[in-house]
Design a protein around this nucleic acid. Structure first.
Lengths: 104, 104
DNA sequence: TTTAAAGTTCGATAACTATCGAACTTTATG
DNA sequence: CATAAAGTTCGATAGTTATCGAACTTTAAA
């Protein structure tokens, strides 16, 4: 990953609330993942109603939370897909790996 | 490390030029470290004339570079100590470890 | 002691960011 | 169709950041 993109990723994680949001998504995805592995499935589907859940956890307006989701998506850290009224959210493993491998 | 401090570390790395600066320092420290290990010394002393070197690599004014050094120090990523006219710079391993372990 | 080199601090400016509430769109349901 | 739920977009505002050059301090050297 180029330095420019890596800086973008760091910028996305540089806001306290956004970092909290990401950790929220990330930890749930990790949980789902290990559950999926135990069930013999290769990979988790992502977490459901991510926005709704986030609204319950963060003390911010919906518009601000929407903004933070966009920022995480623009940085390539997560991917969101609509499912009816709510949306499904997945962590982008390559980006996470890029951050991890940044420091050897 | 608390989320607040972790966010500060990410903020320090969120500027493209500052990230470049950090990578510069970090990679040199890694080099010094492996050199020190081969020589049977436990740990490297850090890199000399870090500011001067940075001025040669980054196309920014000295005042801006000074500012970026301060930001990296405030985030706890590096430590600088004066040595006569120049200064010696070290990477703070705990902070780096915190970033690394952030994503398991 | 004068001069130079290495950084720092200050003040200004332009650009970006976080946040909100209000108004909107889209999807589902009675 | 009317209503509600789930998000999005917009415009405003207050705060933060990156950057520079000029003036400064501190350390070393002639």
């Amino acid at each position: 990953m180029k330095a420019t993109n890596l800086a973008k990723v760091f910028k996305a994680l540089s806001n306290e609330h956004r970092l909290e949001l990401f950790q929220l998504i990330y930890s749930q995805c990790q949980l789902e993942e290990s559950r999926a592995q135990k069930a013999g499935k290769g990979c988790c589907e992502g977490i459901e109603k991510a926005f709704t859940k986030a609204c319950g956890c963060l003390d911010l307006s919906r518009s601000t939370i929407s903004h933070h989701f966009k920022e995480l998506q623009n940085a390539g850290l997560i991917t969101c897909t609509r499912q009816g009224q709510t949306f499904m959210c997945q962590v982008n493993k390559e980006s996470v790996e890029a951050v991890r491998s940044f420091l050897n």
